[in-house]
Amino acid sequence: MSAAYAVSDCLTMTRRELAHWARQPVQVVVGLVFPVMMLLMFGYLVGGGRAVDGDYVDFLVPGMLTLTMVFGLEGTMTAVTQDLDKGVIDRFRAMPMTDGAVLVGRAAADMLQSTVGLLLMIGVGYAIGWRAEGGFGAFLGAVGLLLLLRFAMLWIGIFLALVAGRAELVQAVQILVWPVGFLSNAFAAPESMPGWLGAFVEWNPMSATATAVRELFANPGGEPGWVGAAVLWPVLLVVVFFPLAVRRFGRLGR
């Protein structure tokens, strides 16, 4: 019965998070449209000439899909810190509710929104001429790797939000997220960069996912053997930040 109550609590908190979509449609739409604007901007305004063998759009789209999974961290942090500021989480903690149901509900809603955003980006990619040439099984594998990265970033965002405690501190994290996202191979091949910078870019966990996804999509910039790294990095991040987030949540108010 305790397991049934835990599942029920988690589903209740997930429905609460999804109900916010209906009350804040502009925020949801902006979150979905922004990565599309980035894709179109880099694809048509500043794309090309980046030491990429083949069509630049085929190189760019997998990178943008990966970048979208990383940039979702900011929305996660904002939602959690807003609940902290308003005292909502304190009220939930005072109720007879399974510990961690709030975090699971937040995670489930974020993963659903990320899946919708990913499908939208894939559709836009097809509309501008990008194609996944690796077959249906490889396509599903690439989508799985992208969502795995999002899941890892999600728990990083939850932990940082619980540590920050205030919505205004999210801006400080946003300043760091952008360099991490751009210091990857999302937009340009490491070969086109200075040696020291290219080496740093290749060690970026985001670059591992982007490279593996390009390989599965059979797009330019993919390299065999990167799928393992694209799995290992997110799993390692989850192993570190999931327990940290749960522990921090349990200590709130102490």
Rank of each mutant, 00 (worst) to 15 (best):
F42Y: 11
R23Y: 12
I122Q: 08
A189N: 14
G48H: 12
A19D: 11
R150Q: 12
W233F: 15
V163M: 07
A94F: 06
A142G: 14
L149F: 10
T14Q: 02
S192M: 06
F217R: 03
L60K: 06
V238M: 14
F249A: 09
A164Y: 09
V239Q: 00
Q24H: 10
M111K: 00
P234L: 13
V177N: 04
R50D: 05
L18E: 06
M206T: 03
A199W: 15
S8R: 15
V52M: 09
A101D: 13
A4L: 11
V173K: 07
L147M: 11
G129I: 13
G250V: 02
F71L: 14
L154G: 08
S8W: 10
F249L: 15
V33L: 15
P179I: 12
V36G: 07
M41K: 01
L160W: 10
G157R: 02
V30Y: 03
G75L: 08
L145N: 00
I128P: 12
T78K: 09
G181S: 10
R251Y: 04
A107K: 00
A4H: 03
G225Q: 11
F71C: 04
G63M: 10
L67Y: 13
L18G: 02
V143L: 13
G137H: 11
V143A: 14
T68N: 15
Q113D: 02
A138D: 15
F249S: 08
M97L: 15
A108E: 03
F159R: 07
V173W: 13
Y5L: 15
A4P: 00
L169S: 03
G72E: 11
V7W: 12
F241K: 04
L18T: 06
G141P: 04
Q174S: 15
L237P: 02
I122T: 08
G100Q: 13
W155V: 05
Q24G: 01
P96G: 01
A108T: 11
L140K: 06
P35Y: 12
A208W: 15
A167S: 13
G87S: 08
R131P: 07
W155E: 00
V116K: 02
F71E: 09
V88W: 13
I128F: 11
V36H: 09
G43M: 04
E133L: 13
V116G: 01
F242G: 00
V235F: 07
T12C: 07
D110A: 05
G47P: 01
A229F: 14
L11P: 06
T115K: 04
G181N: 05
V70R: 04
P96C: 04
G47R: 04
A212Q: 04
G141F: 01
D90W: 09
F217N: 06
P224S: 07
V116F: 09
